[in-house]
Design a protein around this nucleic acid. Structure first.
Lengths: 180, 180
DNA sequence: ACGAGGTATATCGAGGCCGATGTATGTCGA
DNA sequence: TCGACATACATCGGCCTCGATATACCTCGT
């Protein structure tokens, strides 16, 4: 997910680690600023994987900036991750929102719509409040005002997302039809 | 966060690992079912910390059930975590929602309201779309329909949560005044 | 002329998480 | 009665993350 964000940011322009750090932190919405000990090893991994190239750009600042470029392989990797292999369902909110933030890089509207449709299917399947054996979750959960709040908030969120998804899918697909 | 959930569930009744696994998975909302390799080491840690007691309950099922009880220390630890030391702000969604799911165990309405009020303060401070140096985030972010969607959804979510928070805080505090 | 604070990268160790795998036993349908 | 499946616990290696720490240079205010 950090890797996805790095690939996504570098798709637009080359950046050095420190800049990436700010952008990633802003994207993750202050939620959890990336630690240096996480970011730099990730960069190293990705350079080793052949997705990034590191060019030194001396003199412009205090320390030498290691400017990172996306390689064609990196670009392919980004697209692969945005398309998201079907087995991994889009069930992790963080992962999903990060994907959304860079979905524009998948430039075929049909493919974009396909990703949104998968998310829509996922959101539409009712959340089970039951265990596997149809035992309902403890009744106490439902006269707890805090858990009620949890449900209220979750409901509002998914309604908002569903509305947006349906709208956007329609737009993408009508545009699609017009251009084909 | 896993530990918080374990403490929370055991506060109501003793449970064995397998049952905990189901409950935690249901709580995390299918988001990411806990792996055995995560749950059982966590239990072991917590037993070692003195928060849990493990009593074997033989014969009732296939494998011997290791029934887990919350110790007084565990209970204190749960309450400490629900009160959440002020330094760590409630910025991680997962953490926050898990807290909410067990906030009833902090049985003083005043303390409950205090926790909600901290969350309210956090949500009310406007999210910065700027870097530290007041450079705005790339303009391209704003004519990207997917990032727009991100903002739309986030806005709807926080509105719903804000409304619920204000409502609930008021209830808790008026109840508080009545009983004092 | 000096120190505080920002820029920029890097490494290390401790510990946590995931995925795979193993080991039993009970239950239920064909 | 045989196999499939659920119950129930456990361990292991590898990878990742976090937090701390280090280095070194620049800028700006005093």
């Amino acid at each position: 997910m950090l890797e996805l964000a790095i690939l996504g940011f570098l798709r637009s322009r080359p950046l050095h680690g420190y800049d990436l750090r700010h952008r990633v932190a802003a994207l993750m919405g202050h939620v959890r600023p990336v630690a240096d000990g996480t970011l730099y090893p990730a960069i190293k991994r990705m350079v080793a994987a052949g997705w990034l190239l590191r060019n030194d750009e001396p003199g412009l600042s205090a320390a030498p900036r290691r400017v990172l470029h996306l390689t064609p392989e990196g670009r392919a990797e980004l697209e692969r991750r945005l398309r998201e292999p079907d087995e991994l369902d889009i069930s992790d909110e963080n992962r999903w929102f990060t994907m959304l933030a860079f979905l524009r890089h998948l430039d075929d509207p049909g493919e974009q719509a396909a990703v949104l449709r998968r998310r829509l299917t996922f959101l539409e399947e009712p959340t089970s409040f039951f265990y596997d054996d149809d035992r309902p979750m403890a009744a106490e959960d439902f006269d707890d005002p805090f858990r009620q709040g949890l449900l209220t908030i979750a409901h509002a969120t998914s309604q908002a997302e569903l509305a947006w998804l349906r709208d956007t899918i329609e737009h993408l697909e009508s545009g699609e039809r017009r251009t084909s």
